[in-house]
Amino acid sequence: MLVTWAYKPRNTLIQRLDPRARLIFTACAMLAVILVWDLRWLLAWLAFALLTYRAARLTWKETRRFWLVVLPLITFLVLITALTGRGGEEAYQTTHPLFTLAIGPWRWVISVEQVVFAAAQFARMLTLATLGLLIPFTIHPAHYGVAFRGLGLNDKFAVATDLAFRLVPSVARDFQTTLDAQRARGYELERKGAGLIRQIRNLAPLIVPVTIQAILNGEDIIDAMDLRAFGAKPRRTWLVELRYRPADYALIALGLLVLGGTLAAKAAGYGAFWVPPALLGG
């Protein structure tokens, strides 16, 4: 099976919280993380994110596929930034050479700032990935629509969210069928020695049928929604009932407080790029 939902019901504190409160808090937390470059703060955030991950009782087996994509990606991005020296230019002006990296005929002078910046960037990206990962793994797929509705988005958008959850597996299945049908005609996804343009052209046998199917299915689905009175009333009701409890209010307050606090700290000059003085001493 190509797509299985990440969500599994568990009786954890995180899953008992209201999805609206979770979404608000996560948005605040992510913003707060993006605002700072101070390694100490970022490490604190990372510790918090990993603790939440632990509290959600997610297993390596479930999340492995996610990490196998995300960890190499983060590492790659951090290394690229570190080696090209880009990205950190606004964060620091002066540099202190630490060592020289030699690969073959190439030489790179690596500075203390570059290393600390890379560490900060790594912590920051990992924190964001972890916080983001928690959402699909701990919010019930049937709760997004009503949660978005509760956050003030309109019915149409909220229903579309639910519909996306319903349709992604169908599209994935169509894709698999098409891939199999074309493979049975001697098609191979990767053609040896083909240039980029040919590689892209080579996707047509997959993309065209899947798109056509999606459009045809879409028309039927619109009919089906019409026949079940979609859009009949200015405001629809939702089977799923979300209810804020004190813990949810506390979570929202915490999110806003953290974000407000970070903004205030930034304004006062805190949270900027920081290099441990011990590293500069020598």
Binding site: P141, A142, D162, L163, F165, R166, I221, A224, M225, R228, A229, F230, G231, A232, K233, R235, R236, T237, W238, L239, V240
Partner: peptide
């Protein structure tokens, strides 16, 4: 089928009728 879960799908028409 519009809903990702059986009970949500069955309720879809009633939700629309508020």
């Amino acid at each position: 089928i519009i809903g990702a879960y059986v009970r949500n799908d069955v309720a879809f028409g009633l939700e629309n009728l508020a």
